[in-house]
């Protein structure tokens, strides 16, 4: 909590979190692309390629459709802001985050929803049927993921006795109140993993590498964007991916995270964190190569499974406890 630390330390930690999110996220995207390239027997671009892409996009002159309103140009900033803010609520390498008090898992989910809302609007704003298609599909995917997400995290929250992410991570890292049978956690993990794939637009829900109108969701919404606006949106979606990987890594396996503020613990925490998210990125890259994208109306089955898993996790928790 904030009262245990000096204000300066709190600000420094929050800034460090923001910087890590901004700095590491493009590399994660690059890593996944590299893994996919290798699976396809290609050399692929370097892991640092997304940084170069971002720099190029920032410098390019943006083209804006004459059909659009201020919503179109404001959306990249809103999406960027809501994603980074949501990211600041997830502990990254220190379990006791200064901003823990600012919001719990519900706030996290609804902050991301704020970005989704404006992206959907932006997709409709240019008037192109592609954008509308993307918006409409994003809406149904978001509708089905959120209940599963909230149920899954709630199953975990019960074990830790808190819905604040930092408190959950801290208590789990210190092995407080851990149930001997890990089945609720495993169920919830499976559910959150499926949700993460859907929320970040990865295969088998969406394909980030496609520009085919039959399949694209996220790409269709941002189709009209260019230049610095596109750069911000691309960066925001990379951050969102990293935030979900962080969530999975730290909520389900927080061990190694810094539970105190000594320099030693902090550096170990940072190193372990980077290894964990890189591992998850490898896993996602592998999944993208092993599975085909599902048909749009098949996604409901997958997300239905995620919801049922989360619910089972909850039921198991109560049965194990009583």
């Amino acid at each position: 909590m904030i009262k245990d630390q000096s204000i300066l330390q709190a600000i420094a930690l929050t800034l460090a979190q923001a910087i890590i999110l901004l700095a590491v996220s493009p590399a994660i995207v690059g890593l996944i692309k590299k893994v996919k390239a290798r699976f396809q027997c290609r050399q692929g671009a370097g892991i640092l390629q997304p940084y170069v892409d971002l720099k190029k996009l920032f410098r390019k002159q943006p083209v804006v459709s004459t059909t659009t309103s201020w919503i179109f140009t404001a959306t990249p900033y809103i999406v960027f802001a809501s994603t980074v803010t949501a990211g600041l609520l997830v502990p990254i390498f220190v379990s006791q985050m200064p901003l823990n008090f600012a919001g719990n898992i519900i706030a996290f989910v609804y902050l991301l929803a704020l970005g989704t809302f404006f992206l959907i609007l932006a997709g409709l704003d240019a008037g192109s049927p592609f954008g509308g298609m993307g918006s409409s599909r994003e809406a149904i995917v978001a509708s089905l993921t959120e209940p599963a997400m909230i149920m899954a995290i709630f199953a975990i929250a019960l074990t830790a006795g808190s819905t604040n992410l930092s408190t959950i991570v801290h208590r789990t890292a210190l092995l407080e109140g851990i149930v001997t049978d890990p089945s609720p956690h495993l169920m919830a993990l499976a559910a959150v993993f499926i949700v993460a794939l859907a929320e970040t637009g990865r295969v088998p829900v969406d394909n980030p590498a496609t520009h085919l109108e039959l399949t694209m969701i996220h790409e269709a919404m941002v189709l009209e964007y260019s230049g610095r606006y596109l750069a911000l949106l691309e960066w925001a979606s990379a951050i969102k991916l990293l935030v979900f990987l962080t969530l999975i890594a730290n909520v389900f396996a927080p061990w190694g995270i810094a539970t105190s503020f000594t320099p030693m613990a902090l550096s170990i925490g940072l190193a372990v964190y980077l290894v964990k998210v890189a591992g998850l990125a490898l896993l996602i890259g592998t999944i993208e190569c092993m599975f085909a994208k599902l048909r749009l109306f098949r996604i409901t089955d997958l997300l239905g499974v995620a919801f049922i898993l989360a619910l089972l996790g909850l039921l198991f928790f109560y049965i194990l406890r009583s």
Partner: peptide
């Protein structure tokens, strides 16, 4: 964070004025 986004845009040379064009149909 929205201000951070604006600062990033200002920092990385996003000064060129927007060009307006019709939506591709």
């Amino acid at each position: 964070t929205a201000a951070l986004g604006l600062a990033l845009v200002a920092c990385y040379g996003g000064t060129s004025p927007r060009r307006y064009s019709k939506t591709w149909a």
